[in-house]
Amino acid sequence: MRPDLPPDWLNPPNLAAARLAQQALAALVVAEDRHGEVRRIAGVDVSNTRFDPESRVHAGIVVLSWPELEKLDEASAVQRAAMPYIPGFLGFREVPALLEAWGKLSLLPDLLLVDGHGIAHPRGLGIAAHLGVVLDVPSIGVAKSPLVGRPAAPLGEAPGATAPLEWQGRQLGTVLRTRARANPLYVSVGHRVSLAGALGWVRRCGRGYRLPEPTRLAHLAANAARRAAG
C-alpha cells in the first residue's frame, strides 16, 4: 500500500467514512498512459459467495510475461471481509485480500488487468481503480457486466465491435465484444492508463476466449483458492 495513504482509507470504520475515502481515492486516479515498458502483465480476480456465513474473500493474482502471455508467477489469499456486501463498496471487501496476495508474489507486474470496473462506478472508484491507486500500479478494469451507464450506440455482433459506455453525459468506458454470440466486456480506466490504452491492452491480451488471458487465468486462480478453503 502507498505509504502516503491514511490506513482508514483501506479499512474505513463505517459507510460514511468509506464514501469519503472513495471520493478521495478517486481524485488520485490518473486517466493517462503513465507507465513504462510493460514486460509483465497480471490478471486479478476475487471469488466469494455472497451468503457465505464467514464472509470470506478469495483473491487470485496471476503474473504473465508480455507479449508471450506465459505464466510466470501466481499467488492467492483468503481473508474475512471487514465490510458487508454492499454494491458500490466492494473494493473495501476485496482490496485487503488482494494486497495480501500481492505481497506473496516473487515477480511484480508492470500492468494489472482487473476483473471488475475502474472508473465506471458511481463514485469513480471500482475495484480496478481502487487497487491501482492503492498500489500506484497501472491498472485496467475489465468487467463482465455494467455497474452504471449503457452503450451509447448499438453494439455490433462481430468480434472486436465496440461502443462507448456513457453515464450522466460522459464516457466512462468502452463496451467490447470479444467473441461472436458472447456477452460483451466493459473496459474502463483503472489508474495510469488512458481509455484508448486500456482498450488496446485488452484486445492484445485476447486468446480466443471471452475474457482476456490475464483475467481468465486469475478467475481460475481465485476459484481454486475458494475451493481449497472449503
Rank of each mutant, 00 (worst) to 15 (best):
Pro138Gly: 13
Val193Arg: 04
His191Leu: 11
Pro146Val: 09
Pro146Gly: 06
Gly173Leu: 09
Pro146Ser: 14
Leu165Val: 12
Ser188Tyr: 04
Val189Trp: 01
Val189Arg: 00
Ala129His: 06
Thr174Pro: 04
Arg192Thr: 09
Val114Pro: 04
Pro164Trp: 14
Ala161Trp: 00
Ser139Gly: 13
Lys144Asn: 07
Ser139Val: 13
Arg177Met: 10
Tyr186Met: 00
Gly116Pro: 04
Val114Phe: 01
Thr174Glu: 15
Pro184His: 08
Gly118Pro: 08
Gly190Thr: 05
Arg181Gly: 02
Asn183Lys: 13
Val142Phe: 10
Gly160Thr: 02
Pro138Cys: 11
Gly124Leu: 09
Gly126Glu: 09
Ala153His: 13
Tyr186Val: 03
Ala120Phe: 12
Gly118Glu: 05
Ser194Val: 10
Pro159Ile: 05
Ala180Pro: 03
Ala153Met: 12
Arg181Leu: 00
Gly169Cys: 10
Glu157His: 02
Ala161Ser: 15
Thr178Gly: 06
His191Trp: 06
Gly190Glu: 07
Asn183His: 15
Ala143Gln: 05
His121Pro: 11
His117Trp: 12
Ala158Asp: 15
His130Gly: 06
Arg170Asp: 07
Ala180Trp: 02
Gln168Pro: 00
Ser194Gln: 12
Asp136Ile: 13
Leu125Val: 07
Gly156Ser: 11
Leu155Trp: 11
Arg170Lys: 15
Pro146Gln: 04
Pro122Asp: 08
Gln168Phe: 00
Ala182Asp: 09
Ala120Glu: 10
Asp115Gly: 11
Asp115Met: 05
Leu135Met: 10
Trp167Thr: 02
Arg150Leu: 12
Ala120Tyr: 13
Val134Gly: 04
Gly126Ile: 05
Glu166Pro: 10
Gly169Ser: 08
Ile119Pro: 11
Gly197Trp: 00
Leu131Thr: 08
Leu135Gly: 06
Gly118Val: 10
Leu125Thr: 11
Leu131Ile: 05
Ala158Asn: 08
Ala143Gly: 05
Leu195Trp: 10
Tyr186Glu: 01
Thr162Gly: 03
Gly156Lys: 01
Ala158Gln: 04
Asp115Leu: 02
Lys144Met: 12
Gly156Trp: 03
Asp136Met: 03
Ala158Val: 03
Lys144Cys: 10
Ala180Leu: 13
Gly173Gln: 01
Gly116Phe: 09
Thr178Cys: 00
Pro164Asp: 08
Ser145Tyr: 10
Asn183Val: 01
Gly126Tyr: 13
Leu147Ile: 14
Glu157Met: 07
Gly132Arg: 03
His191Glu: 11
His117Val: 08
Gly116Trp: 08
Val189Ala: 08
Val175Phe: 12
Arg181Glu: 08
Arg123Met: 10
Gly132Ala: 05
Val133Asp: 01
Pro164Met: 03
Thr162Lys: 00
Glu166Ile: 14
Ala161Lys: 00
Tyr186Ser: 01
Gly141Arg: 00
Gly118Asn: 07
Leu165Ser: 01
Val193Met: 13
Gly156Cys: 06
Gly160Ala: 07
Val187Ser: 00
Thr174Val: 15
Pro151Ser: 07
Ser194Tyr: 08
Asn183Thr: 14
Leu155Glu: 14
Leu147Trp: 14
Leu125Ala: 02
Arg179Thr: 03
Gly118Leu: 09
Thr178Val: 06
Thr178His: 03
Gly160Glu: 12
Arg123Glu: 05
Pro151His: 09
Leu131Gly: 06
Ser188Leu: 03
